[in-house]
């Protein structure tokens, strides 16, 4: 037997691990339910209330963003998926048998990230396109609808799925650094929810300069908008910055993983 452990075999192993525990399956189901289910709920309410809405509201109405509203909630579910993918190895102690089988730690993290990012890309895009199509179908006939033939709309729907993917990867790196499920998920949630609240205490001009850098309120909001607000970066720029955050965190957490004992 002269086979040696390669990235391909690590990916196969990690893919089997990902789909063979209930918690991942449940989190994926929750991601779909939140993204599509909340989309259905909100678009239905809009459709029912449409005739009561003011002209101003009607003119500024965004059929894309309202159909993708579930992303804001699904981001927590994907955070749990990303975090548990590594922290469950620590909480159970399984990291030791994992590393005994794959002692090349860079290869292990690369394999895990490939599996996580591929899975989340599929899940994120299916959820995002699903919510978009179902939302437009609910609007049709009563509320103005958007079409994917509009380049900005297509970009927004794709970016919504990408946003979920990047968040899962970001949460994974926090898990790799912190090694503790609850602590890692708490920090992830704090970044999305608490950080904007802290910034809200700053003077308005400071807020305008800083909010755009936040993963959720800033970058995520811009990525899932057809026309982001004046204080935000462009969708492409936001995508780039969020990707940069993830790359930096992958580098930091992997180098810490290489140094520390398992």
């Amino acid at each position: 037997m002269n086979s040696d452990t390669t990235l391909g075999s690590v990916v196969r192993s990690e893919w089997l691990k990902f789909r063979s525990v209930r918690s991942s399956i449940w989190c994926v189901v929750v991601t779909f339910v939140l993204t599509i289910g909340l989309g259905v709920l909100v678009t239905t309410v809009v459709r029912v209330q449409w005739h009561k809405m003011s002209t101003i509201n009607k003119l500024t109405f965004d059929p894309v963003q309202t159909s993708l509203v579930g992303i804001v909630f699904a981001q927590f579910a994907v955070g749990v998926i990303g975090s548990l993918f590594i922290t469950s190895e620590y909480s159970t102690g399984a990291i030791r048998s994992t590393l005994a089988a794959v002692p090349n730690r860079i290869q292990l993290i690369a394999g895990k990230l490939i599996v996580l990012v591929s899975c989340m890309l599929v899940i994120g895009e299916v959820a995002s396109f699903g919510a978009f199509f179902i939302g437009q179908a609910i609007y049709s006939g009563v509320v103005p609808t958007a079409s994917l033939s509009d380049g900005a709309v297509l970009r927004t729907v794709i970016f919504a799925g990408l946003y979920l993917t990047l968040l899962a990867a970001l949460s994974f790196t926090l898990g790799l650094l912190i090694r503790h499920s609850l602590a890692a998920i708490s920090i992830f949630v704090s970044i999305l929810l608490i950080l904007p609240l802290i910034l809200a205490f700053l003077p308005q001009s400071w807020q305008n300069d800083t909010v755009r850098f936040l993963p959720g309120e800033g970058l995520g909001h811009a990525m899932t908008s057809v026309q982001p607000g004046p204080n935000l970066f462009s969708p492409w720029m936001s995508f780039g910055i969020l990707t940069l955050y993830v790359v930096v965190l992958v580098a930091i957490s992997t180098s810490s993983f290489l140094r520390r004992d398992a």
């Binding site: 086979s3 452990t5 390669t6 075999s9 690590v10 196969r12 192993s13 990690e14 089997l16 691990k17 063979s20 525990v21 209930r22 918690s23 469950s88 190895e89 159970t92 102690g93 399984a94 030791r96 048998s97 994992t98 005994a100 089988a101 794959v102």
Partner: peptide
Amino acid sequence: ALLDAKAIHPGRTARNHLRALAASNR
């Protein structure tokens, strides 16, 4: 090696646990 017998993900079946290890080393 057998270090700590309980250090396995409790939600995975015995066969899947071994298959994941097997897959990583072909």
